[in-house]
Amino acid sequence: MSIFQDANRKQIANRRRVDWLLHILFVIATSVGVLALCALIIDVLVDGVARLQPQLFTEFPSRKADGSGMKSALVGTVYMLLIMLPLSFVLGVGAAIYLEEYAGKNRLTRLIQLNISTLAGVPSIVYGILGLTIFVRLMSLDRSLIAGAFTMTLLVLPIIIVSAQEAIRAVPKSRRDASFALGATKWQTVSRSVIPSSLAGILTGVILAMSRAIGETAPLVMIGALTYVAFLPNSLMDSFTVMPIQIYNWISKPQLEFKELAASGILVLLALLLIMNFSAIMLRNKYQKNV
């Protein structure tokens, strides 16, 4: 009677059941991550919100929890970012431009490429050992702010290179052709056409790499960043501490008050991460409109 008559109802019902089942499975898979993060945030909030007071930002760490703050760690993290950001931006984006625009596509560049991708996955403690050997010992920079910033730069470089390369590769070839056809040199094409078109992607990658760096502890412990710093670094050669180290220091103390302080430190760190990731998203949206 109808063209739908020969449909195999049973088989369709089966297909739908599989569809529904997998749908549920994917929802569960997603919830695991989200729930874990929620649990973490709630747990930390419960412990730390009471200690989230101005003194956290204005006081140096002390033996008494009540008078303790993380001023030196916060400032250390900010200084670290300020040194790392321009360094890793210039080196990382420079390397990405070289690999994407200038280097020939041959076996050597493929090998370099493979190495960079591998380096992006090397455990951060290994960078710590490298930093200790090269910057602290060989260049005798000691346990200074600059040695820490150099080590962290090495750590984030592969991440920045890979993400900048992806952003640069996403610029359509037709845009380069348009520039070359007007008589542009390679650098003119890169600086006036390719980089403006890929800047949002590049910056997003840089910010995400920075937010990874400010949470890193291991490499800085390795090169000997101090856990108890009751002063602000005045020069690049001063010793320093950063937020995750301060948190680690507090959490390893037996008293409950310090555990609460650690929780409030984590809240500050999370807030900073959130701000950075949010600004990465804003940047992307802003630039995507005119790409």
């Binding site: 348009a178 056809a181 008589g183 006036r192």
Partner: peptide, 30 residues
């Protein structure tokens, strides 16, 4: 210089993601 003297228009319109003005001014600025 050759490419300045021999202009090219491509199959797909390929303006830069810039203003109309900056698109035209791109070449002279180069």
């Amino acid at each position: 210089t050759l490419r300045k003297k021999v202009g090219m228009v491509f199959q797909q319109p390929n303006p830069f993601p810039k203003s109309i003005y900056d698109n035209i001014a791109y070449g002279p600025r180069l």
